[in-house]
Amino acid sequence: MRRRLPPAARLPVVSALAVSALAAWVLGTVPARAAVGLPQMDFANPLTTSQVVWGALIFVVLYVLLSRGALPKVASVLEERARTIGADLDAAKQAKLEADAAAEEVARATREAQASSAAQVAQAAAAAKAAAEAEAARATAVLEAQLAEAEARIQAARASAMAALHDVAMETTEALAGRLIGHVPDRSVVNAAVGAALAARKA
């Protein structure tokens, strides 16, 4: 993208070229004596130096064409690629941020749903427990009432049975005594004896 060399480098290029050309010219004017065998060392041949002069010209043309045309073209493509890749990376980074935020949102919603469902479960469990306890208390009360009633009935039956026992025992005693001693003892005696015997049993 650099269309021209910075000034710091431009002047030395020109000056150095001039000095080099001068050096080549001086070298070319030195009569060559060691020009045996090697065509490269044949400085007497004008072509040996003329190729350098033409070469310098061609080199400069190549330098100008490269530095003004070809190299900036390559640089612009490389820069464009770096820009494209940079923009793509930025977009990817942005997308990742958004994806992360969405994932965080999902996680948060999941946590909230879990918390609320746990609360509902606990509430339902407490309600069910309370209902069960109430039902159990009611059943217990009914059963206790029935139990108390049954006990009262048993007491009553027992009392009436005990009352009847005294009469039966007196009659039996009178019958037995009549058979054993031939006559029926006095009712009050029998009554006292049965009462004492029953009291002894009870004790």
Binding site: P12, V13, S15, S20, A23, A24, V52
Partner: peptide
């Protein structure tokens, strides 16, 4: 590049350029 005159021309140019720089 098999010609000394060419390589010497390039080399001298490099050194002269470096000296000027």
């Amino acid at each position: 590049t098999s010609h000394l005159a060419i390589t010497a021309g390039l080399a001298v140019f490099v050194i002269v350029l470096a000296t000027f720089v």
